[in-house]
Simulated scan of single mutants.
Amino acid sequence: MRKFLSATALVLLATLSRADPVPLIDTHAHFQTIPYKDLEASHKAALANMDRMNIARSLLMPSPFATLTPQWFYDIEDLQFAVKANPGRFALLGGSSLNIMIHGTAPSAVTDEVRAKFRKRALEIVAAGAVGFGEISALHVSIPAMGPKHAYEDAPPDHPLLLLLADIAAENGIPIDLHCDLVPEDMPLPEALRPNLLNPRQLQANLPALKRLLSYNHKTRIVWSHVGLEPVPTRQPELVRQMLQAHPNLFMSFRLNRGLPRPSAALDPDGRLKPVWIDLIREFPDRFMLGSDAFYGRNGIVRGSSEEGMRNLRGLIEQLPPELQSKVASENAIRLYRLAPLAN
């Protein structure tokens, strides 16, 4: 028997013993549709996990599909049943159809006709009740743990259609959830990603283009997802600080499947929140949220986040100073996505 427990396990035990643990809003969750699509089963699994982990509300969104494969593709219209059945537990983002258009259209091929088609679809998503556009991808590397066919996608963050989406998002007062694996400068593909042959051996810098997207329309609020644990370990604390200082319209959501010693990981290997990340949250208390990246299937979470990852989100909150806990747990998400307050 182990003679000690990780910091996160101890936090979870302490949390479970409390009468009223801090409720969470998960701003980044999916229904898994590969190799089968059973959205109702995913819905039931999501509710069961949310009840068990005291997640008061989840923001559901389609994966950032880059191609239309009918047997597993879905967008916001396919998720509306979950909100109708449980209006207080779910809210929706949409945009997998937009992501296909972004990745299927070269920047030089964006004509007025393409723009009109893109805008029409974006406004349909807004009309369908979207609280945001997502998950939209710029660079999305293929991760070996997700299987050899896990998507590799690469579009410049300042792609003309992404800039158009920024304008549409600002016009309608809703954010964009952006997946952008960060490449500050041209660099070799990290060794851990080389088993998946969809990835190129050399990654091209995308930080300048990301800065152009963030500066393009200051009314556009962008949630840069998956901070705290990423396959390209470049979003380190000092860079996060610089980006948040330079771009008041930038927000981030934590994904914390596990802890690692590398600086870009928010948790250490024992599940402790690193002091530098606590300092960042204290410096920017209104800019961080939780986003598990859980994929719900028939049997619960089937990929993306893990059981440990879900516990780690709770652990992060419980390790924050009391005055920051509710902000990161739910209040920032309620304000940013214009959600109804949580029921008492």
Rank of each mutant, 00 (worst) to 15 (best):
T234D: 03
S42D: 07
L260Y: 01
Y337P: 04
R282N: 04
P275V: 10
N206W: 00
Y36E: 13
H140T: 00
I25N: 00
G132S: 12
S215T: 12
S292W: 03
P237T: 09
R18F: 11
R255G: 01
P175G: 07
K211I: 01
G129H: 13
Y152E: 03
N344P: 10
S137W: 03
L197T: 12
T69M: 13
N249S: 06
Q236D: 11
L197A: 13
E171K: 01
E77Q: 14
H43W: 13
V11Y: 05
R298K: 15
E308A: 15
S330D: 01
L313G: 02
D20R: 15
E171S: 02
L197D: 08
D286Q: 15
V131S: 02
K84A: 14
A106Q: 13
F284K: 11
L250G: 05
N196Y: 01
D75N: 13
A82D: 04
E283V: 00
W277K: 02
L16R: 14
A66V: 11
Q319C: 00
R338Y: 01
A265E: 04
A85M: 10
P156Q: 14
V276F: 06
A170T: 05
P275H: 06
P148N: 14
G228D: 08
S253R: 06
L313Y: 01
Q71W: 14
D78C: 11
S96Q: 14
G147Q: 09
S42A: 15
L10P: 01
H218F: 04
L92D: 00
H218M: 14
P231K: 08
V126H: 13
P148Q: 11
A155I: 07
H226K: 02
S225H: 01
E171W: 00
A109I: 05
W224G: 03
W72P: 00
P237A: 06
K211A: 01
T33F: 05
N312H: 10
F133L: 07
L290C: 04
P190D: 13
A48G: 14
L161D: 06
K149F: 12
P322T: 12
V22Q: 10
R89S: 15
S264W: 07
M53E: 12
L316I: 05
I334N: 04
K3A: 14
S253D: 15
G134N: 04
L165D: 00
E318K: 06
A48E: 15
E191P: 02
R298I: 06
R298Q: 11
R335T: 15
K211M: 10
E318S: 09
E307V: 11
E124T: 01
K327Y: 06
E113C: 03
P70Y: 07
A91K: 11
L164G: 04
L320M: 05
P341E: 09
K274I: 06
P285C: 08
G173K: 12
L342A: 09
D167P: 10
L39G: 02
P87L: 03
M310D: 03
P341L: 00
R212Q: 02
S292T: 13
N332A: 07
L12V: 05
Q325N: 03
I55V: 12
A122I: 06
L214V: 08
C180Q: 04
M1T: 09
N199I: 00
I100C: 12
